[in-house]
Lab assay of single mutants.
Amino acid sequence: NRLGIIYEIQGMKAVVLTSEGEFLIIRRRKDMKVGQQVSFENEDIYNV
């Protein structure tokens, strides 16, 4: 599992900021809110 803070939500995608200072786009889940810490898997990351 990886951890990140939700920075922005766009439709079915969420932008998270990881503890390494990396911004990633992941698959959104219904319970996500901006500012929330979430765990996610590598499979949830969109390749940009």
Results as ranks from 00 to 15, higher is better:
Met32Glu: 02
Asp44Leu: 05
Ile9Tyr: 03
Asn47Thr: 13
Ile25Gln: 11
Lys30Ser: 13
Ile45Arg: 02
Gly21Met: 03
Lys33Cys: 11
Glu20Arg: 08
Glu22Ile: 12
Glu8His: 09
Lys33Phe: 09
Ala14Gly: 01
Glu22Val: 12
Ile26Pro: 00
Ala14Asn: 01
Gly21Ile: 02
Glu43Gln: 04
Arg28Ile: 14
Val16Tyr: 00
Ser19Phe: 10
Ser39Glu: 15
Phe23Tyr: 08
Met32Tyr: 15
Gly35Ala: 05
Ile26Thr: 01
Asn1Pro: 09
Val34Asn: 03
Gly11Arg: 07
Asn47Gly: 10
Val15Gly: 04
Asn47Leu: 05
Glu43Met: 04
Gln37Cys: 07
Arg27Tyr: 08
Glu8Met: 09
Lys13Tyr: 13
Gln37Met: 15
Leu24Pro: 00
Gln10Ile: 15
Asp31Gly: 14
Arg29Thr: 12
Gln10Trp: 11
Val38Cys: 09
Asp44Ser: 03
Leu17Phe: 13
Gly35Asn: 07
Arg2Gln: 08
Asp31Lys: 09
Arg27His: 09
Phe40Gly: 01
Gly21Val: 02
Ile26Glu: 00
Arg27Asn: 13
Val38His: 04
Phe40Met: 11
Leu17Pro: 00
Tyr46Thr: 12
Gly21Pro: 01
Phe40Thr: 04
Arg27Met: 08
Ile6Met: 02
Ile25Leu: 14
Tyr46Gln: 13
Thr18Pro: 00
Gly21Asn: 07
Leu3Cys: 05
Ile5Ser: 03
Leu24Ile: 11
Asp44Glu: 06
Asn1Phe: 09
Ser39Trp: 10
Asn42Ala: 12
Tyr46Met: 11
Ile26Leu: 04
Met12Trp: 14
Val16Ile: 08
Arg28Asp: 03
Arg28Ser: 15
Val48Ala: 08
Thr18Glu: 01
Met12Val: 11
Met32Val: 03
Ile25His: 08
Lys33Val: 14
Glu43Leu: 05
Ile5Lys: 07
Asn47Ile: 11
Asp31Glu: 11
Arg28Gly: 14
Val34Phe: 04
Glu41Leu: 12
Met12Asn: 12
Asn1His: 11
Lys13Met: 07
Leu17Val: 12
Ile25Lys: 05
Ala14Ser: 04
Ile9Glu: 01
Val48Lys: 02
Gly4Gln: 01
Ser19Asn: 14
Met12Tyr: 14
Lys13Gly: 06
Ile26Trp: 01
Tyr46Phe: 15
Ala14Ile: 10
Val38Ala: 06
Gly35Leu: 05
Ala14Cys: 13
Arg27Trp: 15
Glu43Lys: 10
Leu24Met: 09
Gly4Glu: 01
Asn42Ser: 14
Arg29Cys: 10
Ile26Cys: 01
Ile25Asp: 09
Val38Ser: 02
Val15Lys: 12
Phe23Asp: 01
Asn47Met: 09
Glu22Pro: 02
Glu8Lys: 07
Val34Cys: 14
Arg29Asp: 07
Arg28Phe: 15
Gly35Phe: 05
Glu20Val: 06
Val48Trp: 04
Gly11Tyr: 07
Leu17Gln: 09
Val48Glu: 13
Lys33Arg: 14
Gly4Met: 02
Asn1Arg: 04
Met12Ala: 10
Ile5Val: 12
Lys13Trp: 13
Ile6Leu: 04
Val16Ala: 02
Thr18Lys: 01
Glu41Cys: 14
Tyr7Trp: 15
Glu22Tyr: 10
Thr18Ala: 02
Arg27Ala: 11
Gln10His: 14
Ala14Lys: 00
Tyr7Val: 12
Leu17Lys: 06
Val34Tyr: 05
Lys30Cys: 15
Ser19Trp: 04
Asp44His: 04
Asn42Phe: 12
Leu24Ala: 09
Lys13Asn: 13
Glu43Asn: 10
Lys30Asn: 14
Lys33Asn: 10
Glu20Pro: 02
Ile5Asp: 02
Ile45Asn: 02
Gly35Met: 05
Ile26Gly: 00
Gly11Phe: 07
Glu20Gln: 08
Arg29Ala: 11
Lys13Glu: 07
Met12Glu: 15
Glu20Leu: 09
Gln36Ile: 06
Ser19Gly: 04
Asp44Arg: 02
Ile9Pro: 00
Gly4Leu: 02
Ile6Gly: 00
Arg28Met: 12
Val16Lys: 00
Ser19Ala: 11
Glu8Phe: 06
Phe40Glu: 02
Gly21Asp: 05
Arg28Trp: 15
Phe23Val: 12
Gly21Gln: 03
Asp31Cys: 13
Arg27Glu: 09
Gly21Tyr: 06
Phe23Gln: 05
Gln37Thr: 09
Arg29Gln: 08
Met32His: 13
Lys33Gly: 03
Gln37Trp: 10
Leu24Val: 14
Lys13Arg: 10
Gln36Leu: 04
Phe40Gln: 01
Glu8Ala: 13
Glu41Ile: 13
Glu22His: 09
Val15Ile: 10
Gly4Asp: 01
Glu41Tyr: 12
Gly4Lys: 01
Lys33Ala: 11
Glu20Asn: 11
Leu24Gly: 01
Glu20Thr: 14
Met32Asp: 05
Ile25Thr: 11
Lys30Ile: 12
Gly11Ala: 08
Glu20Gly: 06
Asp44Ile: 04
Gln37Glu: 15
Ile5Phe: 12
Phe40Tyr: 12
Leu24Arg: 04
Arg29His: 12
Val48Arg: 02
Arg2Tyr: 12
Arg28Lys: 15
Val48Asn: 15
Ser39Phe: 08
